[in-house]
Design a protein around this nucleic acid. Structure first.
Lengths: 154, 154
DNA sequence: TATTGTTATACTCTATAACTATA
DNA sequence: TATAGTTATAGAGTATAACAATA
């Protein structure tokens, strides 16, 4: 009644079959393992750190406020993250001239070099999904996920 | 070049635009908030606990080993989870007669009553997505996510 | 010797309140 | 008074090794 077609191994999923969040969590296990292999272990980066680098690469400079929102991190937790990456020489913080409360986060030269390298290797990570998802399916999946992400009940 | 269509607010996503794992994480923020509202706060349950209850409801009895695999938890962490839920009177552990190393985890009467109630209220949670996803899109999304979840590189 | 499950432990992540400095 | 960011801290989640009991 609940299961749609084939469920090869493992116990029955029951109600979970219809819960989007559950399937999201299951898929995340796979993408997380893949991420670890490509960037986690080789570069000692976690997904948030990878995303942070990519955001800075795409925007040249952002405030911690903007980063916290984009990465879904609280302000204190973002501070810790920025501290760590600053200590690793990847980024720097510069006080804003117009509003001295805020600051601009930007990549260092070393940080940009690393980010460029990682960006170059990103297609290889995404290619791991090629065997289970066609290009059209992949694009569609991203589109559907975005609809959910943009759906902020607030 | 990277952005497909409209990107209403926030900084440019750059390379992240093509990273499935990133979109997965963003969508998960929404589903997590929705879960908290429907089950997290009212029942003091976290997503894993909810999933565990649903698995037990669908299977009557499962071993910790099976649960650990289904929930992507390590054995020690599952033990802690089971302890907590056993203390709350939701489930019980019974030694297997055929292999006294293993055990069967099963719902208590109270646990089953709770689980039934929660299962009944699950469609209301999922309905929160109706405004951003058609029924067909929802089914398609789940199908695509399952393809990724089943894609274990091992 | 291998497997099931537990204990102990350390590490990371997350969430909250209180603080500073600017505005 | 409000905002940007930090500090401090407690709680929850996660990972690993060592162990007990059974096979």
């Amino acid at each position: 009644m609940s299961s749609s077609s084939k469920k090869p191994q493992g116990p029955a999923q029951g109600v979970l079959d219809g819960v989007v969040g559950h399937h999201l969590a299951c898929a995340r296990v796979t993408t997380h393992v893949t991420f670890l292999k490509h960037f986690g272990q080789p570069y000692d980066l976690r997904p948030v750190e990878y995303s942070l680098l990519m955001l800075l690469a795409a925007n040249a400079q952002l405030t911690p406020k903007q980063l916290a929102q984009s990465l879904a991190l609280s302000a204190p937790n973002l501070t810790i993250l920025l501290d760590r990456m600053q200590d690793r020489g990847m980024l720097q913080r510069v006080r804003s001239e117009v509003d001295r409360r805020s600051q601009h986060v930007m990549l260092t030269d070393a940080g940009r070099a690393l980010t460029d390298e990682i960006a170059t290797k990103t297609p290889a990570m995404e290619a791991e999904l090629d065997s289970c998802l066609s290009r059209a399916e992949r694009a569609l999946l991203i589109e559907l996920l975005d609809k959910i992400a943009r759906h902020r009940p607030a």
